[in-house]
Write a protein that binds this DNA or RNA. Structure first.
Lengths: 130, 130, 130, 130
DNA sequence: GTGGTCTAGACCACA
DNA sequence: GTGGTCTAGACCACG
């Protein structure tokens, strides 16, 4: 369900954050669901527990998951994006970078728009819809 | 014309690569135009010459600029994007990341699409069009 | 009357100690009053009986409540704060932490003082006064 | 300048965060000043570099300090507290806890208010004022 | 020389 | 059994 690329230059803990966010967004993990324990996941992915820990803490900081004392970690039931103009401006910048890159790879506007459309569709297939 | 954020977590040399690519894309620098010398630019941006050097090397590797020995560095006159399925897949992944992030910031598909549209427009205003 | 936040990072048993202290301070529970049994309270708050037990023990250690064997747990009738320079110095430290935090949240001295005043007022409304 | 209590139950990294915040608030370290490097401070305090690192990262997250790529860590020059109702409510709660504790230590309102006044005074002595 | 990441392994508090 | 903290030691990217 979750894949880590040990060879990638992006830190493992960030990959993991990313993957979990995606899994939740797609509805594979729903609000209230239990995530695997730190130890469990570390064994499964053959990475160090501390690394998993770091990812979980980052996700908790973002209010996407929450820890229930001694019971484990769960997908937040009440995640609410809050206005964050700074993050929004960062997002815009990241998007700009990607679009510039796309141009240099020879994609025209049409192809880019199509790729966006496709990805958005992919990401919004909820489990419940199946 | 070019701005570097010393506090950003993305390496300065990568920021610079990014900025130069954007400047070229927007037509501020056109094929055949001369880029500032490493020393010049390093002074102007108050960053280490080695850092500028590294950026120029990266851009040269990508065939976006070229160095004429003793004469300086110029925007390539013959840049041609080539099919690169690996880079394309990386791009797709980066785009996916941004879109996931957008969702968690509370943007719906409409707002995302609009943002893409806006950025694409911004990026394709060529100097020549003015 | 008593609220526990399972998601909070402060241990449940400490939250409970805190809450009971507050309830007594406000006079909702008066000296001599009976506290709910461990079992009762654990059911009511849907927490582990061991956790309630731990809280009661802590409160007993602080002489704030007392256990009459077989009869239940009662608010002490003879609580007397005793000079405890160590605890006082801990308190001072905790207060300092809060005040530093307040500054970093942008509160000026006036606002801080006002907040203290308000809270003190809130806390000293006794049931008997109603 | 900074003291860590290895025996304390509060994590070292949190103590360090706290201490640095206080040092900055008192003006011993001013905006733009360089903090000791991770390694340096870890040697000085005889704690693990990772622990210092964790503190620095937490402070950076709070925008109180910032990292200048390869040059070291500096006190932010443009810290601006931003409206954060959630943090404010946590602060209020913490303050309430302290005040309750104070009552149980036998302090009356007058003494509490006086202690607050004293601490506020202590904390707002800036280096520049000396 | 600076911080960022990761591993291995240990201990502890909490429920 | 769960996560939280800490240490020791290693490697790496960046400037």
């Amino acid at each position: 369900m979750i894949r880590i690329d040990q060879r990638s230059s992006t830190p493992i803990y960030q990959q993991l954050v990313q993957e979990i966010k995606e899994v939740i967004l797609r509805g594979v993990l729903q609000p209230g669901d239990k995530l695997p324990s730190v130890r469990e996941l570390s064994v499964q992915l053959t990475i160090n527990p501390n690394t998993v820990q770091k990812s979980y803490q980052e996700l908790e900081r973002q209010k996407i998951i929450e820890n229930l004392r001694g019971k484990g970690t769960y997908v937040s039931t009440h995640y609410k994006p809050r206005e964050d103009t700074e993050k929004l401006s960062v997002l815009r910048d990241d998007l700009r970078k990607v679009l510039i890159e796309a141009h240099y790879l020879g994609l025209d506007e049409e192809k880019i728009t199509e790729m966006v459309r496709q990805l958005l569709e992919e990401l919004t297939i909820r489990e419940g819809d199946r």
